[in-house]
Design a protein around this nucleic acid. Structure first.
Lengths: 170, 170
DNA sequence: TAGCGGATGTTATAATATAACGTTTGATTT
DNA sequence: AAATCAAACGTTATATTATAACATCCGCTA
């Protein structure tokens, strides 16, 4: 299988980190977790995960579909949505509810439910464990008597890099 | 214009509150805010707001469309989406991102960005100001250098009434 | 080798949302 | 009063997101 990790990134600000490391860590973790859990990270699922990890931006399902078609001729919406369902179930990606899009999860295996900081300028999504926030949330649920199944905490704005480069106004 | 407030509520648990009061307060506040702001709460917008306030459940756009058709013959998707856009801009309703649905905002005028507790059983949405959570969030944003434009904090689970009536397992 | 379950292929369609352009209406200006 | 303008609304079309339903394949095991 061709490695997709090197594909064009095209960030509005320079990628200051070693993204290949992000990708390889994410894929290694995913492979490991799937073995441990006795679930199959099939070629399709692996390719979709790799495509998602092409960047830290949230990606749309149909973008993924377009991008997987050259690799997987005859791919259909169900091809992508099934892979996405699997990856979400396994906590390997986040669904960004407020964008109808998807982004890799850096901490699969550990805590999956995190604060997502979504930059309107560069579209990158930063995950933060935000333990104080989570603790305050737990207290709130206790007060309300609410039994939590899942959390979506999505913040839109301007990330620190874009604010530095382009100012706060966009 | 016919009052829609009395329409069927059909909750899984009895509505322990005076819902007519919720509705009238919401509509009064909306009317007042729109006057103050010099924006028009037109009949369509008013009707859509009233339909949304029919219950505390999140409502889908096309459900609203079906329900407004008898009142407003020839209503089309744009009819609803425009009204929803207006109501959201004015902070009179919340868009529930994780459901692609809409719910009335009880605290229009005050803080609009709140924690939403969404019950999987009865579908009702509870708004909570959750000031400790918001404070912890602010600290997190400061740490991250992130400039916030908007927040979606949506928690799915079982509300206190449903937990009492049906247990914690659903 | 027959049967089973999980993954995938395939076709169709449902559900959600917006674009684009025309018309109405009411306020403001001329 | 006529001309103009902007906001709201009407209308048609289409884009975008997502799922249903059923067929097939493939590896496992009974």
């Amino acid at each position: 299988m061709t490695t997709l990790a090197e594909a064009s990134l095209n960030h509005p600000h320079p990628s200051e980190h070693d993204h290949k490391k992000c990708v390889s860590e994410a894929l290694d973790t995913a492979e490991h977790l799937c073995v441990v859990r006795g679930v199959q990270l099939t070629p399709i699922r692996h390719q979709v995960l790799e495509l998602i990890w092409d960047s830290h931006k949230a990606v749309k399902a149909y973008e993924l579909l377009d991008r997987i078609k050259p690799l997987k001729d005859g791919a259909k919406p169900a091809t992508i949505y099934r892979a996405l369902d699997f990856l979400i179930e396994q906590g390997l990606i986040h669904r960004v509810e407020s964008l109808n899009a998807f982004v890799g999860c850096s901490s699969s295996g550990h805590q999956h439910e995190q604060l997502l900081l979504i930059c309107k300028h560069c579209n990158e999504v930063e995950e933060r464990p935000a333990s104080e926030v989570m603790q305050a949330l737990s207290q709130e649920f206790d007060q309300a008597g609410f039994i939590v199944h899942s959390k979506a905490i999505e913040i839109h704005g301007i990330c620190v890099k874009c604010a530095a480069l382009y100012g706060d106004q966009d």
